[in-house]
């Protein structure tokens, strides 16, 4: 039971990441391979603030969102100047730069050692120290993000985003400031990823840079492509399937190291096959 709860928390965190990336990549069509950087930025903000000051977890989440929105605004501003697929390449570069900052941050980020001893959230004297109470918190956050994403998608703002994806130039002709819309959704997505990062840091109670590499960004892309681009439901389904897949591999009896590699091989093969035979994923609307 405890194990199922653990999986539930992980699925919720990855579902939040998938939903937020889906806004950027699925609805707006920006291929971003830097999402793990925002995930990590949120996680490290919570980790550093809650181990060195006694700020409340929920305050650190807000600070994390704020800092991440500044960071993502800068990154998005630069990325918006690139054309075509070079956005994807540039975003990889940003992910590596943020990762380098985490790993070379000296005493501030404790480098490859990571930051241990992150406390669980507390509010009005109630502590989410048990995994089951944390699951409730994670699911609450997931629902919040889910409905926020749905609201964005269905608003007039969301319709503009989809139009950008379909034909950016036509929209510019109609007088829309396309760059502003893209930046806005990029920052919103990054903030949501930061929330997932804070949850992750406080749930695992430990962060280190190896969780926030380009590989993790590719993993997030696999989730939303499997579930289906431009579908919130798809993002959640993808997160469930791909988070549970490695656990299933472990149950079949692969040793831990081989299981991790097999998981990667399966993701790789899955990406290839999806691109070849079903680029819209399970329930997606959009084919890149």
């Amino acid at each position: 039971m405890e194990y199922l709860i653990h999986l539930g928390v992980l699925v919720s965190i990855y579902a939040i990441l998938a939903l937020s990336l889906n806004l950027v990549m699925g609805y707006t069509g920006i291929i971003s391979l830097t999402h793990a950087a925002f995930f990590g930025f949120g996680a490290y903000t919570t980790a550093i603030l809650s181990t060195r000051t006694n700020l409340n977890f929920f305050v650190t989440v807000l600070v994390g969102m704020l800092l991440t929105s500044v960071l993502s605004l800068l990154i998005g501003r630069v990325l918006s100047k690139f054309r075509g697929d070079f956005v994807a390449l540039g975003s990889v570069a940003f992910n590596v730069i943020v990762w380098s900052i985490l790993i070379n941050g000296g005493d501030f980020t404790r480098g490859p050692l990571g930051i241990p001893g992150i406390p669980r959230p507390e509010i009005f004297g109630f502590s989410f120290s048990s995994n089951s109470s944390f699951l409730i918190l994670a699911i609450a956050c997931l629902l919040l993000v889910f409905f926020a994403a749905r609201f964005i998608e269905r608003s007039s703002f969301g319709r503009v985003l989809k139009a950008i994806r379909e034909d950016e130039e036509a929209l510019q002709v109609f007088g829309y400031r396309v760059v502003h819309y893209k930046l806005a959704v990029f920052v919103i997505g990054a903030c949501m990823a930061a929330v997932a990062g804070s949850l992750y840091a406080s749930y695992i109670t430990f962060v280190d840079p190896s969780t926030f590499t380009v590989t993790e960004s590719i993993f997030m892309i696999s989730i939303i492509i499997l579930g289906g681009l431009a579908s919130n439901k798809g993002a959640v389904i993808g997160a469930v399937v791909l988070t549970l897949l490695p656990e299933a591999l472990r149950f079949v009896g692969f040793p831990a190291d081989i299981a991790a590699q097999t998981r990667q091989a399966v993701y790789g093969l899955m990406l290839i096959l999806l691109m070849l035979y079903r680029p819209q994923g399970f329930v997606g609307e959009y084919k890149l």
């Binding site: 697929d85 892309i221 590699q261 097999t262 990667q264 091989a265 790789g268 290839i272 691109m275 890149l288």
Partner: peptide
């Protein structure tokens, strides 16, 4: 589109590097 090819090539990267590691 270039994006599909790029993602497929990411798949190739992931797949081959995992096979080598196995």
């Amino acid at each position: 589109s270039g994006a599909i090819l790029l993602i497929a090539s990411l798949g190739v990267l992931f797949f081959l590097q995992a096979i080598l590691a196995i």
